[in-house]
Design a protein around this nucleic acid. Structure first.
Lengths: 148, 148
DNA sequence: TTATCTGCAAAATGTTTGCATGCAC
DNA sequence: GTGCATGCAAACATTTTGCAGATAA
């Protein structure tokens, strides 16, 4: 498993290699994404970036995240409820565990289903490029609390 | 596997049992949902409902779909790109195959992973209530076409 | 120096809501 | 007859976009 610093360097190097400019704003967004394990929303990224770099605008967060998504350095997760979540620490497909009460997203430690993609490709003729396995439930913390 | 008519009856009976009123608009929405295998968007449901029942408003489609989702008779699928897809023919968890070019959604015939939920529950303490397994790829038809 | 990036504000998109009228029961 | 459902339009939330000025390389 990479450290946050290593992950930051990888993203940073990738952007430079593709001739994108490294601005303080982008640096701040990369840092938040590399350090976050909880799959933050754009708004949460914005709030954290502002503590380090208060001048940043929400539009820039959106533009940076969209760019990173396009070059495959960030994975976008769409759950019900409108706002997307982003994983910049581990942008490759892996299972997620979503709490339907507090909306926290965690990464459970179970194997993925690489073999299934091949089987599916052979059966359907699709060229499979990605997969998503998500589980929905109530986390231990929320089980101990009154229902909304 | 149920027929479309059986599925329509199940949804219809469920609504009546819960004391919801059966209006012509709702009947039309139920019909479209029960007959559709391609996981339509709200807009697509709206267009089809209008051919049978032109007076229906988009807001009513939203309200009906939201109601059906709440009582578990329709499953909502959030993919990247904003608009949600709905499965009223088979609202229980099952894998999906999403074409990233034409955005068509199909149901591949592979087994689900019921056992994994139990394992996950034991490991994490979550009370698992649902799961989603989606594959992303390019469908055979789109492979033969030029990239956008 | 110069093309790219930022920040602002406006626009676009998808969805929800308030309320007067209409209709299922 | 009563209360729930509809339809309209306005409100909302999130994300995207256009553009003038700023700045990384």
């Amino acid at each position: 498993m990479e450290t946050h610093q290593e992950r930051l360097d990888v993203m940073s190097d990738r952007m430079k290699a593709l001739d994108y400019r490294m601005t303080p704003q982008r640096r701040a967004v990369l840092k938040v994404l590399a350090e976050s394990r909880e799959h933050p929303t754009v708004d949460q990224i914005y709030e954290r970036v502002k503590t380090d770099f208060p001048m940043t605008s929400l539009a820039t967060i959106y533009k940076t995240v969209t760019l990173l998504k396009e070059i495959g350095e960030v994975m976008e997760l769409n759950f019900s409820g409108g706002r997307s979540r982003y994983d910049g620490f581990n942008p490759s497909p892996h299972p997620h565990l979503y709490c339907i009460r507090c909306e926290r997203v965690t990464d459970p430690e179970i194997e993925t289903f690489e073999g299934v993609s091949d089987e599916l490709s052979a059966k359907t003729g699709y060229e499979i490029v990605g997969q998503r396995l998500d589980f929905f439930g109530v986390c231990p913390r929320c089980q101990g609390m009154a229902r909304a």
